[in-house]
Design a protein around this nucleic acid. Structure first.
Lengths: 195, 195
DNA sequence: ACTACATCAACCTTTTTTCTTGATCTGCTT
DNA sequence: AAGCAGATCAAGAAAAAAGGTTGATGTAGT
């Protein structure tokens, strides 16, 4: 069952009794989405916190000039949402789209509230998720601010080698803050160097 | 201006003064969508009633086994929505996707409510739209129930010759309730016969 | 046994998407 | 002023996806 994966994930952060775990897991719904399908769109409220069981997603914004900016990638065992929309239950500004046929587990906002009210440990779990996320973004921003395009790419390669083969290059470029052409040149330079 | 088209359309059903017409039209927003873009998706509420100014759309459901069933096509001067979702403001169960780059006019649910409250004639217009739609679907269901795949195709050809060139064949097959292979054979048989 | 249609698999064609490359800018730094 | 990091634009090439066709085989109802 696909919830086993989420179970294992949760167990790595908090200790729950069997009943607690079942209560927690039963609040999630399994959903399958196809490549290119959106699970969040601007103007609609992001109703679910979603855990990726299988597949890959990309979160991005479209600027007024039409440029896309990728904020996050998510593959197996990552969470993905427009968190500003989810947490405040305001209309989303981001797109979240499947990059592959995927299976996800979704937790509705009101169910999450109920869980947190019901049991302190659940609250703890979500707190840990938020802190991890915050710390991650801080690292990212700091790194990006202080490194060249090539260094940012190398760093991504090092930290997320398994993402590289699965995300389209234009998306990676827009995540790393450069044009797709420039990323293409960087890659080309590297491979020539190596061989 | 693209609202001229809607104006002409409306005039063919109700008589409105200039001010009434302007009030009515000003409730619509023009939106451009690209081919393959969704304007309605399952789980999200269908917030707009949409009028096709230019382009083509397809409304379909995906069954549990993954099969797609096309409920409606819409080209210029047709309306398209997940009406169950729009009317009841419940989450949609259907997809509505652009088959071509398109221009549409969208009326938000609450604006429609305001219009209907404001003026009896507006209410009349929407009533006529609904009745036309209902009658159309009844004709369709009855015909489909009582005719063979080939007859259904011939009938579609006869009634909507301008749709045929614009909708992909797999979509038409799923609208007519047959497999894409079978439709391919029917078409093939016909053209051989003709020449 | 025949008709009407489905399923599956292979294959082809066309369209779309993604990536690459060259040429030409631009705005800093040094 | 030259050099570097990186953008922009245009043209192609390569890869992937979408759409369509065909043959073989199966099935349910008359």
């Amino acid at each position: 069952m696909s919830k086993d994966q989420l179970r294992t994930y949760i167990q790595s952060f908090v200790v729950l009794s069997n009943e607690e775990m079942e209560q927690f897991l039963s609040s999630f719904e399994e959903v399958k989405v196809k490549k290119r399908q959106f699970i969040v769109q601007p103007n609609f409220i992001n109703q679910y916190r979603t855990f990726v069981v299988k597949g890959a997603f990309r979160t991005y914004a479209v600027a007024d000039n039409g440029q896309e900016h990728t904020l996050q990638f998510a593959i197996e065992n990552w969470w993905v949402s427009d968190f500003n929309s989810y947490i405040y239950q305001h209309p989303a500004t981001l797109f979240v789209v499947a990059l592959e046929d995927s299976t996800i587990l979704q937790l509705a906002f009101n169910k999450e509230q109920a869980l947190k009210k019901a049991n302190h440990k659940f609250e703890t779990f979500f707190r840990i998720m938020a802190e991890k996320g915050l710390a991650f973004e801080h690292r990212r921003i700091l790194f990006d601010l202080t490194h060249s395009a090539e260094a940012r790419y190398e760093n991504f390669l090092l930290n997320f080698p398994n993402f590289v083969q699965r995300v389209p290059q234009y998306a990676l470029a827009s995540y790393l803050g450069m044009t797709t052409e420039f990323l293409s040149r960087i890659r080309n330079k590297r491979t020539r160097k190596k061989s």
